[in-house]
Every structure is written in structure tokens, then in C-alpha cells.
């Protein structure tokens, strides 16, 4: 129960950050792909630099999680096709819907109800991928 509350709290924190940073705004995504402002690049870039320092530190220090388990940061399977093709498809949708999965949940909470249509589409896309997985080149 305690753990469940912690996960919800982490989510609340992240949801607030997504909204207040405007990373959940369709307009900001459009502007990013127009290279008109540094805002989104600053967000992703600074998150990345700090994330990199943290991740490398955790891997080197071999520390346990706060619940006492081992921390496993798995490598991604090596390949090219799935990342390139899947990445491009994701990018097309990201720019059109103006939202990636995290912001989708944020926008739902913020009350932009047509995001339900986007979420429905995302679930459908996930489902169709699951059906086709073995037929697709990875």
C-alpha cells in the first residue's frame, strides 16, 4: 500500500512537470520541429545530461534500491531496423497528435477530452503491433 502511494506520488510529480514545462503542449512540439525555440531542446538536453550522470553513477556504485533489491538497468537489444522504422513512425505520430505517451495521461487529467481519441488510437496501434510483431522485420 505504501509503495502504491509512492508510485502515484511520483506520477503526480511527473504529470505536473509535464504540464508546467509545456512539454505536453501540442504547440511546443510544433515549435520544436520548426527549430524556433530552445525550450524543448533545453528540457530534453538538461534532463539527458543529468540523467546520464545519475545513471552512470548508479551503475558504477552497485547500490541497492530503496526497497533493498538490486538495481538493474538493462541494455537495449542490438538492432537497427526496429529502432529506425519504429522511431520514424513514432515521430510522425508525435508531431501530428502533439503528444507522446506521458503527456497523453497529463492532458487527460487537464481535461482536454479529445485526447481520449488519441489514447484510443495509441492502444489500437499497440494492439496491432502485438498482432503483427512476428511478421515485422526487427
Amino acid at each position: 500500500m505504501m509503495r502504491s502511494i509512492i508510485y502515484v506520488l511520483v506520477g503526480i510529480f511527473f504529470g505536473v512537470v509535464m504540464f508546467k514545462s509545456e512539454a505536453a503542449s501540442w504547440f511546443r512540439i510544433y515549435e520544436m520541429f520548426q527549430f524556433e525555440a530552445f525550450h524543448m531542446y533545453g528540457i530534453i538536453g538538461s534532463a539527458l545530461i543529468l540523467g546520464m550522470i545519475f545513471t552512470q553513477w548508479v551503475k558504477k556504485s552497485n547500490r541497492k534500491s530503496l526497497f533493498g533489491d538490486d538495481i538493474v538497468i538493462a541494455d537495449k537489444a542490438k538492432s537497427f531496423t526496429r529502432y529506425a522504422v519504429g522511431g520514424v513512425l513514432f515521430g510522425l505520430g508525435w508531431a501530428l497528435a502533439g503528444a507522446c505517451p506521458g503527456p497523453m495521461y497529463t492532458l487527460l487529467g487537464a481535461g482536454f477530452m479529445p485526447i481520449l481519441v488519441v489514447i484510443f488510437g495509441a492502444l489500437l496501434g499497440t494492439f496491432i503491433y502485438g498482432l503483427l510483431k512476428n511478421k515485422l522485420p526487427h
Binding site: 519504429g86 508525435w94 497528435a97 505517451p101 488510437g121 495509441a122 489500437l124 496501434g125
Partner: peptide, 8 residues
């Protein structure tokens, strides 16, 4: 848009 995000 959602479909591409989910599938991709």
C-alpha cells in the same frame, strides 16, 4: 496520430 505513437 495516436495509432502511430502506439505502434511506433
Amino acid at each position: 496520430g495516436g495509432f502511430l505513437v502506439g505502434f511506433g
